[in-house]
């Protein structure tokens, strides 16, 4: 565990989390959530939990981003009600 590295990753985690909430465009928010997943994956790998980091990289950053994009493609920009 390297403390300066931890602090940098944690700061970026907070920044990406806030941006993904503030951004208006759903597609951009999904992309930023992908970045968030990769940062968490880095954090876990650096803390020694390599198996968890691997799962996060495959599921969190990879497949769930694709699932969210596939869902967003079926939404419209304006709500109908």
């Amino acid at each position: 565990m390297i403390v300066p590295f931890d602090i940098i990753i944690l700061i970026f985690l907070v920044i990406t989390a806030v941006i993904s909430l503030r951004v208006r465009d759903l597609l951009s928010a999904t992309m930023i959530l992908g970045v968030y997943s990769f940062l968490i994956c880095l954090l876990w790998a650096e803390m020694g939990a390599v198996d968890v980091a691997f799962t996060e990289a495959a599921v969190g950053a990879g497949v769930s981003t694709v699932f969210m994009i596939a869902t967003i493609y079926h939404t419209r920009r304006r709500s109908s009600d």
Binding site: V50, D51, A53, F54, T55, A58, G62, V63
Partner: peptide
């Protein structure tokens, strides 16, 4: 590192 879950997802 790895196993059924990760390999299956990939």
């Amino acid at each position: 590192p790895g196993g059924g879950f990760q390999g299956g997802v990939i």
